[in-house]
């Protein structure tokens, strides 16, 4: 469990990081908090030729709220997200961050790292999808914005092109009075979720995104439609629909039926929490 050889460079600034990423060809990986990449290196599951350490770049961990939009720098730690207000619009983000690992992981792991790593069972990609996050990607050639819905392409696979770095994630302002919630089921405290659900509910607005059940986080459109139309009255039906409508995979730890069962339960619990009836 020692990594294979790689070249390492620590970037002092964003510009330097983008230069290093551009030079490193396709075999380069950005290293932030290292909570996923370092174990993957030790298991020799990934063998990058170059690592660009962005962890020391000043200012890349800022969290700003303006016009109801929440912009979060790539290096913002899970622990910082967990301190966001626990109820209301960003409740789901804080709850998801608190569900990640343990303290030692949360003070190192970053939002940017979690989204770019795109583990199908990770918490934060589900929140990004549910709450219409926009991801700002930078490279030496310029900047572009990608919606979360277009960012996650498959397990550990994203829209990031070679030489690109995720620098900021912006969550759109939910409708006034909207509330969000996040629920997951993990075997032990701090484990990756067997299934997790992020919901948002407001007047005429509904979001249900599910993680841990397929290659990427997915929305549950039929359940959302039921909820948008009927609000609190549709909770049971929306939960049951979410449990039915998605493509769900099964494995040794949870077969397909088990995952559908969990999606239904977690959706109902998350909706109950968001609607204040938990």
């Amino acid at each position: 469990m020692k990594p294979p050889p790689f070249a390492y460079a620590r970037a002092g600034s964003l510009e330097e990081a983008l230069d290093l990423l551009a030079e490193g060809s396709e075999d380069v990986k950005a290293l932030a908090g290292g909570q996923s990449l370092v174990p993957a290196l030790s298991f020799r599951l990934v063998r990058p030729s170059h690592l660009v350490d962005i962890d020391g770049i000043a200012g890349l961990d800022e969290i700003r709220e303006s016009d109801g939009r929440l912009s979060i720098g790539a290096l913002a730690r899970h622990a910082a997200l967990a301190r966001l207000e626990r109820a209301g619009s960003w409740g789901a983000l804080a709850a998801a961050a608190r569900a990640i690992g343990h303290d030692a992981i949360r003070v190192r792991g970053t939002l940017g790292g979690s989204l770019a790593h795109a583990d199908p069972a990770a918490e934060l990609p589900v929140v990004a999808l549910a709450l219409d996050a926009e991801l700002l990607l930078a490279s030496r050639g310029g900047r572009r914005t990608v919606a979360a819905a277009d960012f996650f392409l498959g397990p550990f696979t994203t829209a990031l092109a070679p030489g690109e770095l995720l620098v900021e994630t912006t969550f759109a302002a939910p409708p006034a009075g909207a509330r969000t919630a996040f629920c997951e089921f993990a075997t032990r405290t701090g484990d990756f979720a067997l299934a997790c659900v992020c919901v948002g509910v407001g007047p005429g607005w509904a979001r249900i995104a599910v993680g841990g059940v397929g290659a990427t986080p997915v929305r549950a459109p039929q359940a959302e439609a039921l909820l948008a139309a009927s609000g609190a009255d549709a909770v049971e039906e929306a939960a049951a629909t979410a449990g039915r409508e998605l493509e769900v995979y099964g494995d040794r730890t949870a077969n397909e039926g088990r995952r559908r069962d969990l999606v239904r339960t977690l959706t109902r619990r998350a909706l109950a929490e968001a609607l204040g009836s938990a």
Partner: peptide
């Protein structure tokens, strides 16, 4: 230890 589910004090 990802899959060998040794509990922690929290569990």
């Amino acid at each position: 230890f990802v899959d060998y589910l040794m509990p922690t004090a929290e569990d």
